[in-house]
Design a protein around this nucleic acid. Structure first.
Lengths: 247, 247
DNA sequence: GCGTTGTTGGTACGCCGTACCAAAGCTTGG
DNA sequence: CCAAGCTTTGGTACGGCGTACCAACAACGC
């Protein structure tokens, strides 16, 4: 026993399979994913996953060393969804990056829990494939390795930040009224002239409520995301002397 | 009793003060902040904060309804640090936004725990001040309210995304070697031609380790952040027909 | 068949957030 | 100056968490 000191990375530790085990890491991850999507990330507990699978709680620990590792599996499973099918892959770097970023945004927005733990699976195979695909997207730029790295990082950062805010918890129901009343009082102190000006002279509360609803709306969040992405890519193209797409 | 049905927002609920209480919300928040900075966000528990203050655990619940509210207080306290002193505030929108974004980045990077809960205090007074300041930054753009909103959102998104990745947990020590060996094996499968090309023919492991160290380094992360920010602002300026600073 | 060992899962420990409620002490009316 | 009545304190307890430890079970090689 203990002939092989076990790897610290789950990706290099083989999953059990010498004597047909009842489960697989993939099953476990997808059960966890289903719970997270249905009831939120907080509902994902080892006991809960196990009972969903009809397993004993501790059995999971034979497939995974800690809950963090399990979360890493969840994240990597998500990254699998992010991959853009080869046939949809544009040739020009600008379009290709846009496609990758947009798909990433669309997937992450449907799994709001992901960002609280993303980055925990930086080496997962699907994350590697995403990275590979991102590199392919900028292959025709002629940039050197470091600049490609920087470019992809910047775009990823923006995507994640955008999702992060779009997923932010929002007040709802009666609390909206209360928040508006509170904001009105704050503005009335005179400490916030810019905000006051923004909501011009005497904006009725109905308008503010509408503005709030739109700020929270997913569709307009996606719109903001796309506008920002284009601006970002434009700017990067100029700074790095890259061509823009023909369109 | 229960004459006033208590507000759902902590910001509108007055803190206890009719009969000199022992603590203040501010004290509690700053104790929590100290713990988070010293030992990580996970170490912040109600019991821990209370014992740090020499209080009974349940006493905290007289100042705060739930732990989430307490976290909101922490976040808002952080946002206080983010405010740019008036005398350092540039006049041109490009420089002003850069100043605000950079300061935000610098503060958040020192409190890596913040992003897991930021957005939980969207209405906190310091967050409002930050918003006010951001609006002041773009006051001279002549944009309408919706466009200002969009512009600020895009920049904030990028800042948060950048911090998020810069704070991502990184492998360290012996695990680095293991990760490199793992990556080498993956690349050797031929499934990752782009990655293979990036690390050119036969990059020695020493170089890869160096590349990794640099990717993780905070200073170069800040550098990437600033480059991306400039690109973003350039792009936005072009798309929204805004002037660039004289410099 | 038996021994080996991969696989399962029960029990238990020390954390967590917080509901409930009794005690303590400030403040005011008399 | 005392009593009443409130604000403020904090003890106890409950259900849940991650997981260490370890006994039992079952699949395979011989």
């Amino acid at each position: 026993m203990a002939r092989d000191e076990e790897s610290a990375l789950i990706w290099t530790r083989p999953e059990p399979r010498t004597r047909r085990p009842k489960f697989t890491r993939e099953q476990i991850a997808s059960a966890a994913l289903a719970i997270a999507d249905a009831e939120g990330f907080a509902a994902v507990s080892m006991r809960r996953i196990a009972s969903e699978l009809g397993a004993g709680t501790m059995t999971l620990y034979y497939y995974v060393r800690t809950k963090d590792e399990l979360v890493a599996l969840m994240d990597d499973a998500l990254m699998g969804e992010v991959l853009v099918p080869a046939e949809e892959f544009p040739t020009h770097w600008y379009d290709a990056l846009t496609a990758v970023a947009t798909r990433t945004w669309d997937v992450l927005i449907r799994h709001p829990w992901a960002l609280h733990s993303l980055q925990s699976a930086p080496l997962g195979p699907n994350n590697m494939r995403h990275f590979e695909q991102s590199l392919a997207a900028v292959a025709d730029t002629g940039l050197d390795a470091a600049d490609k790295f920087a470019l992809l990082g910047i775009v990823d950062d923006y995507v994640h930040g955008s999702v992060l805010r779009a997923c932010a918890p929002t007040v709802s129901g009666e609390t909206v009224e209360e928040a508006l009343r509170y904001a009105e009082n704050l503005v009335a102190t005179g400490e916030f002239p810019q905000i006051q000006a923004l909501f011009g002279g005497d904006v009725p509360r109905e308008d503010s409520r509408h503005a709030y609803a739109q700020a929270v709306d997913v569709a307009s969040a996606r719109d903001r995301f796309l506008r920002g992405l284009s601006a970002l890519l434009d700017g990067v193209a100029a700074r790095m002397n890259l061509s823009l797409p023909p369109s």
